[in-house]
């Protein structure tokens, strides 16, 4: 087996994992809330890739039945990910609305700036 084939066998999973840890890094290391939400959606799309990659069959076609074809991709991951995409955009919308509200209340969407303000208010109360 050539080196290219060796790499091609698992390349999808490696990129999936790279995207996943990039999303994780953004969520943990960045303090800006909108950037974090976008990092969360990078994490989410990596999961789409994780589901769709094993369902692909080389030489197959999309799962739309026709008499000329006999090999189809697995339709079940496609259905699950269709649901996940729509739920993902719903949670992103809710998160962005929260960020807008937080900006209205604190004048900032940086967590590093907001947490000291909350601490001070807690001490005053």
């Amino acid at each position: 087996m050539t080196l290219f084939e060796e790499i091609a066998q698992h390349y999808n999973y490696w990129v999936t994992i790279l995207l996943m840890v990039s999303g994780l890094y953004i969520v943990v290391a960045k303090s800006n809330m909108i950037k974090r939400l976008l990092g969360l959606s990078v994490f989410q799309t990596s999961v789409y890739l994780l589901y769709l990659s094993p369902g692909k069959i080389l030489g197959g076609t999309p799962p739309i039945l026709a008499s000329e074809y006999s090999v189809y991709a697995n339709p079940l991951p496609h259905v699950l990910i269709l649901t996940a995409i729509v739920v993902g955009v719903a949670t992103l919308a809710l998160g962005l609305a929260l960020a807008v509200r937080i900006n209205e209340a604190f004048g900032s969407i940086e967590e590093d700036e907001i947490v000291p303000v909350i601490d001070r208010e807690d001490h005053a109360a």
Binding site: Y48, L52, S53, G55, K56, I57, G60, T61, P62, P63, I64, Y72, A73, P77, H78, I81, L82, I85, V86
Partner: peptide, 9 residues
Amino acid sequence: LDAVDVAMT
């Protein structure tokens, strides 16, 4: 990856 419906969405 042959996921045409997902690609459109």
